[in-house]
Write a protein that binds this DNA or RNA. Structure first.
Length: 501
RNA sequence: GGCCCCAUCGUCUAGCGGUCUAGGACAUCACCCUUUCAAGGUGAGGACACGGGUUCGAGUCCCGUUGGGGUCACCA
């Protein structure tokens, strides 16, 4: 079997799109599954859309996901450079080759004329496209225009009749009528190639064996095949991956029209947004693997190594799919729960620090198992338990109505809290188990149930209605701070009593 | 609109002519457990778009309809 070489070839126009990551993943998977090479190539041939920070953002996202490339920017390789703007001479040379061999021609038409042609075609209800005016220019005419300094592009001489049969690993054969092909621009007037020229030349020069790209490219598939054939180069294998649609199934995922969940929250489209939320890379990869492809047995959680054992590009489902966002959250939650406490703590730390909290490792390690089954994304730890690391001086007690539990009022809550203070005073130590035992023992005597007693204390101490469990929270806060907060809650409640009449 | 692709529960999917009264997962709902929120346990509802063929037999093959998607640049 020949060496499998795949490539991910994004244009650096911004952060990496989630769909781009999926394309990269499948390329990576195919290469790794066959002990081949995965190449990263940057398609920055559009000077108008140049973003100098995008390359770094891109490589950061790819590395985060664990998709290390064997050749490409930052790592080099035998077929470099891997940035298209540094390969201009190749495209110019091969474009000229096509002209010399009568497979392409110079076109001197101005953008204004092109626009005019399209307008006229539209008026006649014809499909838009270049009218091939310059295709029939004589060598003398071309020479004269060049001598006059007229700018030109190089266009492909698409076959006018016949058919192009393309073969796709996922979709099988498709036949296109050549009459629908356009004389696409291969080399722009600024000397930069268009995508159509650059992909073919680079995929050939870089010895790519399998071209895996999004279905968006399917319409230009026959054009590319024709270009490959014009060069006389043997075709690589092609596979066009299905696109990920908005969760509601309407249209592609895009930043212009951000998808939303049922509650109206925006669902991110960029990998960096997921990184910021605290999606674990392993969870992201696991999740993405099961869209358009399926692990095969009925497991939903599996490692990338296991995927490598059975990944086959032919098994990719040709149908587009809606982006199943809730499943990503579920998958991430599964991975979070499987983490050892120390690892979880390490993962949590940057999110807490980012929120401006004073994290100490000892308490963080105790907190980790407490929040483990309560968060789906790492960043969730901040609203849930961030208060534990917040500056005590800035603590704001919860309002009275939040402290008061079901079937209780301010007065009874104050009574309970005062008894609690007295009880705490008698405790030899201040840890979760001691507290739990002591407070569980007094509910009947105090005439409340667990839910009421633990509830008042929890809201008093955390200042929130949703938080970590009561006694874990108290242990984390420490005796002194817990007592202080209970006293503050009592004050808050007392202030509310007159208002109740 | 032209060209092209696609079509199984709400969603992601399994299914590659008989083992399908269609399996799993997420989501939803109910119950259990319960210290808020979770997690966990048990259970329920929920799909082969439609119409023709082919075949002894079709979710699985063919054609059409409908629906959805992609694409029509000196952007990728």
């Amino acid at each position: 079997m020949t060496v499998v070489r795949t490539r991910f070839a994004p244009s650096p126009t911004g952060s990496l799109h989630i769909g781009g990551l999926r394309t990269a993943l499948f390329n990576w998977l195919l290469a790794r599954a066959h002990n081949g090479q995965f190449i990263l190539r940057i398609e920055d041939t559009d000077q108008k859309r140049f973003d100098p920070t995008a390359l770094q953002t891109l490589t950061e996202a790819l590395r985060w996901a664990g998709l290390q490339w064997d050749e490409g920017p930052e790592v080099g390789g035998p077929y470099g450079p891997y940035v298209q703007s540094e390969r201009l001479h190749h495209y110019q040379q091969w474009a000229q080759w096509l002209v010399d061999n009568d497979k392409a021609y110079k076109c001197f038409c101005t953008p204004e004329r092109l626009e005019q042609v399209n307008k006229e075609k539209q008026a006649r209800k014809e499909p838009p496209g270049y009218d091939r005016f310059c295709r029939s220019l004589t060598p003398e005419q071309v020479a004269a225009k060049e001598a006059a300094g007229e700018k030109y592009v190089i266009r492909f001489k698409a076959p006018l009749e016949g058919q192009t049969v393309v073969h796709d690993l996922i979709r099988g054969e498709t036949t296109f009528e050549n009459s629908t092909l356009q004389d696409m621009v291969l080399l722009k007037s600024d000397g930069f190639p268009t995508y159509h020229l650059a992909v073919v030349v680079d995929d050939y020069l870089m010895q790519i064996s399998h071209v895996l790209r999004a279905v968006e490219w399917f319409p230009s598939f026959p054009l590319h095949v024709q270009i490959w054939q014009a060069f006389g180069w043997p075709l690589p294998h092609f596979a066009h991956l299905p696109v990920m649609l908005n969760p509601n199934g309407k249209g592609k995922m895009s930043k212009r029209n951000p998808p939303r969940d049922e509650k109206g929250n925006i669902i991110p489209v960029f990998v960096h947004d997921y990184m910021k939320q605290g999606i674990l890379p392993e969870a992201m990869i696991n999740f993405l693997t099961n869209i358009g492809w399926n692990f095969g047995d009925e497991r939903d959680i599996f490692t990338v190594e296991e995927t490598l054992q059975r990944f086959r590009i032919e098994d990719v489902n040709p149908a587009n799919s809606a982006f199943p966002y809730p499943k990503l959250e579920w998958t991430n939650a599964q991975y979070i729960r499987a983490l050892p406490a120390e690892t979880l703590a390490q993962h949590l730390k940057p999110f807490l620090l980012e929120a401006g909290l004073a994290v100490d490792d000892e308490r963080l390690l105790k907190l980790a198992p407490v929040v483990q089954t309560r968060i789906t994304r790492l960043a969730d730890v901040v609203p849930l338990a961030g208060f534990i690391f917040a500056d005590p001086a800035a603590f704001q007690p919860a309002p009275a109505e939040k402290i008061i539990q079901k079937k209780m009022d301010a007065a009874s809550s104050v009574a309970i809290l005062e008894k609690s203070l007295a009880l705490i005073d008698t405790l030899p130590s201040f840890d979760t188990n001691t507290l739990l035992e002591a407070f569980s023992a007094v509910t009947t005597e105090w005439g409340v149930n667990n839910s009421q007693l633990f509830g008042v204390l929890r809201v008093a101490v955390s200042g929130q209605t949703v938080s970590t469990p009561t006694f874990e929270t108290m242990e984390l806060l420490g005796r002194e701070e817990s007592v202080r907060r209970i006293q503050l809650a009592i004050e808050t409640l007392r202030a509310a009593i007159p208002a109740e009449g």
